[in-house]
Design a protein around this nucleic acid. Structure first.
Lengths: 223, 223
DNA sequence: TGAGCCTGATACGTCGGAGGTCTAAGCGAC
DNA sequence: GTCGCTTAGACCTCCGACGTATCAGGCTCA
């Protein structure tokens, strides 16, 4: 195994074992390199790799720190990975989202606060009845993110955030090419929100399923 | 932005745009560094980072290649990230798994082949009635992986694979401390398998839910 | 006395070059 | 035609130097 890979494993080990805790500062590059028995260049490769997936936070002129290791932060790296997938696997991502999002919406129905409900309502009101496709898609992302956050599971939230990325382009495309897509999306959002207000988990789950299935169906017929 | 980060973005762009396709070979380090306008050292940091998340495959003495970019390969990186989470977030991972696994099991009920069913049966038979805890947990992983693969969604499969890792230790712990855990797991596996043989998606879903919920319940009462 | 500026120490960022190791392909002997 | 060796090419590792950003402490000036 290459020394750099060893260094990655060792640093990972220090964190997992608890020797390094979230927020802790690592020894400076030259010292850490000496400790681990490699050159500063090779160590930097290891640190850079860990920093790409948000394990380490490198600040020039200051030092290198262990991040908070929040699921949200770490799963951000997922969206970077997901970006590499081509259109032919979008359907698979969408299928997973179709499983998770209704479940998250149902969970949110039982936990969401009145405040958040009002915020979501305001958001939909602000968008109006005839938004641009770009605005709609951006609002769509925000709307679902707001709901999923209310599920109370940050892992679930980050995962869905990552999965939503690759379908964004598809949704824009759909809005531009399918006649009724905008109106339909707006109506479905209202329906989901109403179900949440009623604390009706099953209705919320069903509307969320319908909402995603319609995108899926369109995508499947198009590809 | 640092030159290394720029390089990461540029390489990513070359792949996403299609200029570099899966399996393609990158120019040699010195040439690529010159093209992108940075030193070989800095470029290596970028390449190493992309190689950690399985975007690039570096082969000493040969060259650097774009990986297949299979969802399975890319989401492998997820398990690396998941390793960093501490026990207090295991419950959140388990909750997500509780959503995905029943759905995957239900999907599998409609698609799994007789061959795979026989293989799963043989696997359970081989384990016997009184296995060691380690064997049981290993078999558990294999069993569920086999089923999820039959769902036909490779993204779902990789995701569950990644999520199962952090709960493995918990399951071993459970097997060691909870009296009936081993027998119960064996019975539940048999039940899931029977439902799959009957092509009864709803029964399969329910048994999978029960199976995971029992782990979740135990874990919740223990922490 | 307090705020603000300045400066030095510190740590990360980037670079160029040298030598080592590994792989694959070409070549010759059998 | 096959096997083993040689060699060129590519990545691996290291070193030393200099650039740049940050922070802390001292200094100046109201």
């Amino acid at each position: 195994m290459a020394v750099t890979d060893e260094a990655i494993e060792k640093i990972k080990g220090m964190i997992v074992s608890g020797a390094l805790r979230p927020g802790d500062r690592l020894p400076k590059e030259s010292e850490l390199a000496a400790d681990l028995g490699l050159s500063r260049n090779s160590l930097r490769e290891a640190v850079r790799a860990l920093s790409l997936i948000r394990i380490l936070d490198v600040r020039q002129g200051d030092g290198t720190y262990v991040t908070s290791l929040d699921p949200q932060l770490l799963l951000e790296a997922l969206s970077f990975v997901v970006d590499f997938h081509r259109d032919d696997t979008v359907l698979e991502f969408l299928a997973v989202r179709r499983i998770l999002e209704p479940a998250a919406t149902a969970m949110a129905a039982l936990r969401i606060s009145e405040q958040q409900l009002d915020a979501l309502t305001a958001q939909l009101d602000k968008l109006g009845d005839d938004p641009s496709v770009e605005d709609l898609v951006a609002c769509d992302l925000e709307f679902h993110r707001g709901i999923v956050q209310s599920s109370g599971n940050s892992v679930l939230c980050s995962l869905l955030d990552g999965l939503s990325g690759p379908t964004t382009r598809a949704r824009i495309w759909r809005g531009l090419t399918q006649e009724d897509a905008v109106g339909r999306t707006l109506r479905e959002h209202r329906a989901i929100l109403a179900a949440l207000r009623d604390r009706d988990a099953e209705a919320a789950r069903s509307w969320a399923t319908v909402h995603i299935a319609s995108v899926e169906q369109w995508l499947r017929s198009t590809l």
